[in-house]
Design a protein around this nucleic acid. Sequence first.
DNA 1: GCCAACGTTGGC
DNA 2: GCCAACGTTGGC
Length: 151
Amino acid sequence: MPNYWLLKTEPRSYSIDDLERDGHTTWEGVRNYQARNFIRDDMKVGDGVLFYHSSAKPPGVAGLARISRAAYPDPTARDSKSHYYDAKASDEDPRWFMVEIEFVDKFPELIPLSTIRDAPGLEEMLLNKKSRLSVQPVAKAEFELVKGMGM
DNA sequence: GCCAACGTTGGC
DNA sequence: GCCAACGTTGGC
């Protein structure tokens, strides 16, 4: 039974087009404990991902991806030159984890956040409730609904 | 650029 | 353990 997720990214930093070009990518730099726990404890290879563009015009779901590598310690936490450096991370306690994802599909048109907000069946999406969380679990029915809206 | 929501830090 | 101060996220 796969799980489903929504991952946020600012397309100016890394967009669905970048992922399509690269085929797959690392997802480092998550520095929120709730998001970390989802990554570390619950993400499995093969899980479905809604690829979300935040701080975009408009913000919304741009396509689909898939978890291609399960959680492992995020090395940028140990790199003092990294923007994501965390002095409290250590070999014994890596503190932060990351996964890798692979490209699945780019939607012909991005599904705007406003559309998702208004869509019947998506009222309970965390996107509408805990809007700041950058890694969110998505119900299978929600995933399928959004996928259907995009393709 | 503003600002509401909310997570984190640190003094007590 | 509380909570004020502070920093960040992200929509608008």
